[in-house]
Computed example of a mutant assay.
Amino acid sequence: MKKLVLGFLVVIVWSACKSNSGNKMTLPIFGSRRAVSKVVDGKTEVDTIYQTIPKFGFINQYGDSITNKSLDGDIYVADFFFTTCPSICPIMARNMLKVYDTYKSDGNFKILSHTIDPKHDSVPVLKKYADKLGVNGNTWWFVQGKKEETYDIAEKNYLVAVKKDSTAAGGYVHAGYFVLVDKQKRIRGAYDGTDPKQVDQLIEDIKALRAEPDEVIVQ
């Protein structure tokens, strides 16, 4: 299941894709991009527009509406799971707890875990799941919504493969990636959520991302 990734085939060399500026690390920006020309003070300049996470709407474990606006000004990590998953999800949850414990006091950081089984994973089920993990407050949201919308945003925007598969353990197949998103809602990294070393790197990369200015240009 770890290998089911649509757009992150280059993640296997993600550590080599970062660039240094002096002693500071700059994370790459993933996804599509396009050049846009604009006139500034009579001169034509070319700006790069990067792929961003689009508008969305889900419900979290408290029954609150969570939209893209709820994450304005935040760095966040997104992943996909389901509460009855018998394989990689428990490992992912334990590893995500390390990220949560490191940044839960940071008011501008969030974790967004999307269930891919919204029929079973109701709001009360998600709340029970969060409570079992010891998660409280508003740093880590477990969200559910329409199945089609969840799958669509997973594959088209977060570039993570998910699907229902009756032959798989638990009935679903999904990639176990933690996707790092910056304040401008651009993807800045993807990490195998079952690999402690990559999760440790994610924690370090969040620190690097927090040190960046709100607007950063990556060549």
Rank of each mutant, 00 (worst) to 15 (best):
I59W: 03
G176V: 07
D79Y: 13
G42Y: 07
Y158A: 08
A208W: 14
E148P: 02
L133F: 11
D192P: 02
C85Y: 02
R94Y: 10
A93R: 07
K156G: 01
D205M: 10
A16K: 10
L9H: 14
V181R: 01
K3L: 14
I88R: 04
L97E: 08
T48D: 03
Q198P: 07
I187Q: 07
G42P: 03
P213I: 13
K163E: 12
D192K: 07
T150Y: 02
C17S: 12
A93D: 12
Q184R: 09
G73K: 07
V181E: 04
I116Y: 01
T167N: 15
V173P: 04
F109S: 11
P118Y: 04
V160H: 03
H174W: 09
D101G: 07
L126T: 04
Q198L: 08
G22R: 10
A161P: 00
S113C: 01
D64S: 12
A130Y: 06
E148C: 01
A78W: 08
K185P: 05
L71N: 11
G22S: 11
Y177Q: 12
A130H: 09
V181H: 05
N136E: 14
K38I: 03
N95D: 03
G107S: 15
E148R: 08
S87H: 10
N108P: 03
G176L: 00
V13P: 01
A208G: 06
G63D: 08
K132Q: 14
S70N: 09
Y62D: 08
L159T: 01
L209M: 15
D192M: 08
G137R: 07
Q51P: 00
S166I: 13
L180M: 04
G137L: 06
V216Y: 12
A169H: 06
Y191W: 09
A130N: 11
L4T: 13
L6H: 09
K146I: 05
G189Y: 05
R188P: 02
L97F: 03
F109Y: 09
T26Q: 12
S122L: 13
K156Q: 13
S21I: 15
I66H: 00
E212P: 01
F142E: 03
N157R: 04
K132W: 04
S65W: 02
N108F: 03
D64L: 09
C85W: 02
A93W: 00
R186C: 12
T194K: 06
K127Y: 11
V135D: 10
K104H: 14
D106G: 06
I187Y: 05
G63P: 05
Q144F: 00
D121Q: 01
